[in-house]
């Protein structure tokens, strides 16, 4: 089992190196950093000196090695636009995005699984039909429209929740700030979290429902019923557990997308997170920020995939045995 985990970590590192190569090549192919930094008026000698100082005259491999080496130390250079350290910019904005993503991911998972189980157990019931129909809206409406509709309903018409921004922020230690410790902060989190998580929730719900229906038709469920086990135990212990492998795969992947693609939601709600930072970086062709963002998102995806793979081993003894058998060969 351990050897399988080590092998998967090795694969993950390989993936990250390839992504780093893409991020690195952005510097070379999207404009010339020298002219961006010095402007058009600079002399050829100035350019040559800067080239030498930035190491742009070294071979590609050496430059790539240096890029990876610096990235490992958390050094992604400075932003072309603000002159700030990119790492510091990310560290400053990551808590807002991570908090939003976690909050909406947890909401999506809890409601997705609950609704999925309910609609699978009671397929013909009014509540199930209602949820299934409304979930179509969640799948088919674009995120920005949902965000705008929510703002219209809850901020403009009802005036219950703020329409934009992240307020009530508390500083926790030197590197984390949170908005969930104040009522105001939680209020400002609700609408963006729903907007961001609605699609994931419907996806999880539909998957759980489909998997539950499949599992409930299995012989071991019939046998569990014939043994007289209570329905609660059959549904939530025997059946739900057997749907988990595909479900956590999707939850994991979706959580990656929540973080990576929070751009739209953050724009709609002016949420001061990474998505907003990234979209500004694109407007201003701020290559160091873009490339650092790319590397960061890929690290998140790879890490989540790794965690999901390890979770498989804990959930399903068959996968565990297969992993052990593979190791002993």
């Amino acid at each position: 089992m351990l050897s399988m985990i080590i092998r998967r970590i090795g694969q993950s590192i390989l993936v990250l190196l390839i992504v780093a190569l893409v991020a690195f090549s952005m510097f070379r192919f999207v404009g010339d950093p020298v002219s961006v930094m010095l402007g058009q008026e600079a002399t050829e000698t100035d350019r040559e000196m800067l080239r030498e100082r930035l190491g742009l005259n070294n071979s590609l491999l050496v430059q790539y090695g240096r890029f990876v080496g610096r990235a490992l130390e958390g050094d992604f250079g400075v932003s072309y636009r603000t002159g700030e350290s990119v790492a510091a910019m990310i560290a400053d904005r990551a808590p807002a995005t991570i908090e939003l993503a976690l909050f909406s991911g947890i909401l999506a998972t809890i409601f997705g699984i609950t609704f999925g189980v309910i609609t699978a157990i009671n397929r013909k019931g009014f509540f199930s039909q209602f949820i299934m129909t409304t979930s179509l809206i969640g799948v088919s409406l674009p995120t920005f429209l949902i965000g705008v509709l929510l703002i219209w309903l809850f901020s403009v018409e009802l005036g219950w929740l703020p329409s934009f921004g992240r307020s009530g922020v508390t500083q926790l230690g030197s590197w984390w700030h949170t908005s969930i410790l104040t009522l105001e902060g939680i209020k400002s989190l609700i609408l963006p979290a729903i907007t961001l998580g609605l699609y994931q929730m419907t996806l999880i719900m539909r998957l759980v429902r489909a998997e539950m229906l499949e599992v409930l038709g299995q012989d071991y469920i019939r046998f569990a019923r014939a043994r007289g086990l209570p329905l609660r135990s059959i549904y939530f212990d025997h059946a739900l557990k057997n749907t988990l492998v595909p479900v956590i795969t999707i939850i994991g992947l979706q959580f990656g997308s929540i973080i990576a693609f929070s751009i739209i939601t953050e724009s709609v709600f002016q949420w001061p997170g990474l998505g907003l930072m990234f979209i500004n970086a694109i407007y201003h062709v701020d290559i160091p920020v873009m490339s650092a963002y790319l590397v960061m998102v890929s690290i998140i995806f790879v890490a989540i995939n790794l965690i999901v793979d390890i979770l498989y081993l804990f959930i399903d003894p068959r996968i565990r045995d297969a992993a052990n058998a593979g190791a002993s060969e």
């Binding site: 299995q218 012989d219 071991y220 019939r222 046998f223 569990a224 014939a226 025997h238 557990k241 057997n242 959930i315 399903d316 003894p317 068959r318």
Partner: peptide, 12 residues
Amino acid sequence: FQDPLSSLNPLK
């Protein structure tokens, strides 16, 4: 039931 292969919950 007929099929012992599928009568037992594989995860328990």
